[in-house]
Amino acid sequence: MFLKDYFTTIFKSTKSLLTGMKLTGYYFTHPKEIKTEQYPDNRATLTMFDRFKGEVVMPHDEKNEHRCTGCQACEIACPNGTIKIITKQELQPDGKKKKAIDTFVYHLELCTMCNMCVVACPSDAIKMAQTFEHSVYDKKSLKKVLNKPGSKIMEGVE
């Protein structure tokens, strides 16, 4: 019984070692399996995966309209105080006043890309972009205003 165990151990371990060597041998002989992205060289063709979170952006359409109502849900949801929304009262054509955003301030240097603001937004006004080359020489240039100058809210977004 002891001898049987002894030899079984030898054969099993040899087999498992050979399995490992087979895999590394496969990788060695198949350079196509290489996963490395040679980053600065392939900048033109580099595509990040879908869930990659680089920074918060506010998409604008061709008429320079965004979907942000200025509800400040993102500002409340943000754990770091990254987002600061300054609102204003805008006069509607029918004479009523309506709340709208004046500036959507986004501090990239505080952001941890946790995605909570995007989840909290009721009108899908902001999303995560896939850019990641954020290094700058001055911290101040990381403070960004997301709504473009002269933009206004899209029709039908409440």
């Binding site: 041998g25 990788y27 060695f28 350079p31 399996e33 290489i34 996963k35 490395t36 040679q38």
Partner: peptide, 12 residues
Amino acid sequence: VAGFMQARYGPN
């Protein structure tokens, strides 16, 4: 060898 066995390039 290490690089190719771990599916990367090694020094290049």
